[in-house]
Write a protein that binds this DNA or RNA. Structure first.
Lengths: 150, 150
DNA sequence: ATCGAATCATTCGATGTCAAATGATTAGAT
DNA sequence: ATCTAATCATTTGACATCGAATGATTCGAT
């Protein structure tokens, strides 16, 4: 008799993610940044992205939200935006020296946090976790019927 | 040679949780509710809570955020708030008939979603996932040094 | 060459969240 | 009895996020 439920699995996932994200954001704040700032900087540094839309996708947020963050980062002097002369719809986003420095500072904090998170977890555990998370993601998007592609 | 990193584990967790929460919220929206509404209703129905602070803790949000949601739910006629005559600092929050009806509607949607989420996962997988999530939660709160209790 | 559709970014309006300050009430100490 | 502390909820001000509407530019078809 397969009686599944104990605690809803989605709830557990959401609570854990909230706790972990919160702690990560604290760690980044101590280094002078924030979670969205870090995701934007690392995406800019490690990927060749053609436009802001692709950057937003890489970060996992909507274009409108990205614009908002870029405004703040530009005001802080961490990056610049200029129109691509070859296609003036496109903004070329580029890190300044200060942006580069912030990237390195946040990277140190992010690496330390990831290490902390992995304490007590064997490589095999990580692999298992990744498999289970992937399954949950699939299950959440499949069969939704109302279909909001994520 | 233990080279851990591939994708940061926290990032994977956050993305998965976002996708799953999003899908769950969609499912609840189709039933006329939302994620916070559901968490508040189920907490009220299934726990004996002495005040709003305890309700906020049960839901996993701050008191200020709860007040905000209760305003909306009260305006919608799903619940009532009245002062406890024995201790007038305390608001007694009670579901109306409409609130009860909403609870049952959302419960149906929530159960269906949880079933959907569990597809392809054996009881053993669920247990493993819970163990791993618990570990991540511990790791995120331990050693933070800056100490923000979550 | 021009006009309509597509693309890219931004703005606008809304929701959910938090931390800090405020207001009301109760409990405790003298 | 009064005064200070603590407790409970709300308000205020801020940020992150989204969807929809808007503005600018380019592309494609005629």
């Amino acid at each position: 008799m397969p009686r599944p439920a104990g605690q809803p699995i989605g709830l557990n996932l959401a609570r854990t993610a909230k706790s972990v994200s919160r702690a990560f954001d604290d760690a980044l704040a101590a280094a002078g940044g924030s979670l969205p700032t870090w995701l934007i900087l690392i995406s800019l540094k490690t990927q060749r992205l053609g436009n802001q839309r692709e950057l937003a996708d890489a970060v996992g947020i909507q274009g409108a939200t990205l614009t908002h963050h870029l405004n703040a980062l530009e005001a802080d002097g961490l990056l610049t935006r200029r129109r691509n002369p070859a296609n003036r719809r496109i903004h070329l986003v580029e890190l300044t020296d200060r942006g580069e420095a912030m990237f390195h500072r946040l990277r140190t904090a992010a690496i330390a946090f990831d290490q902390r998170l992995r304490v007590g977890l064997a490589d095999e555990d990580i692999a298992t976790l990744e498999r289970l998370l992937a399954r949950l993601r699939e299950n959440s998007t499949d069969g939704g019927a109302s279909g909001r592609a994520d």
